[in-house]
Design a protein around this nucleic acid. Sequence first.
DNA 1: GTAACCACTTGCATATTGCAAGTAAAAATT
DNA 2: AATTTTTACTTGCAATATGCAAGTGGTTAC
Lengths: 118, 118
Amino acid sequence: MSKGKTQDWHGCPTRYAAGILADKWCFLILRDALLHGKRTYSEFLNSPEGVSTNILADRLAKLEATGMLDRQIDPRKASRVCYFPTRKARDILPALLALMVWSTRYDQFTDAPESFAQ
Amino acid sequence: MSKGKTQDWHGCPTRYAAGILADKWCFLILRDALLHGKRTYSEFLNSPEGVSTNILADRLAKLEATGMLDRQIDPRKASRVCYFPTRKARDILPALLALMVWSTRYDQFTDAPESFAQ
DNA sequence: GTAACCACTTGCATATTGCAAGTAAAAATT
DNA sequence: AATTTTTACTTGCAATATGCAAGTGGTTAC
């Protein structure tokens, strides 16, 4: 059970979610893709948390491999690569919002307005 | 921003949640504490994912530090140490359940009954 | 009083991460 | 047409984190 890549964890629902989401960079990339409309490598790279380039490349590949992001080269401009959130990624939104509500309640330095917790 | 322990991430709600939860072992420990009623070191250690002893000790300490678990020595039996989920941890449940529903939908090998997805 | 149990800690090899620099293809500029 | 810039990465390496096995020290059971 403990063998193999955790991104291939299956079976238990918590474990499956952990295998895909329980990595801070994947988590933040999904936030950027789902909530901030980010699509390109350089957009993700410029997030305030400051992911390093090799890790970003690795996580984008993992999120593509787990069916969370769809990598596409812009046919009009071949240097532009876009990562689109899939349906599977969009379906995470309710859980993500529930987590944000929780954070808003418990982070004493939250940026979220108090109204969000309601 | 990228400096410092990620468990001290504040501000953005997604980032705050990521700092505390986006670690597979923390995630699974919370599952065990909240959903399976586990309380002791050896109970957590015996979970099927097979965490190693040093990592378990580290994560229990982190979860205590972030106010998710309350460590208490049994006054009737001093060799027994119990980790109780706090209110803060229990308030994660809605998000955890939302994630489990998502996993049940997308994990082709899920253990959860089909009825759970409804 | 001795053996077993429980909650850890330690040492060390391996894996992952972070940082800086580099590359290759395409696009924009001159 | 040649050069610079942009974009999406890759590479090398040092620092950190992880996994495994073995060990420790305070209970508790026998």
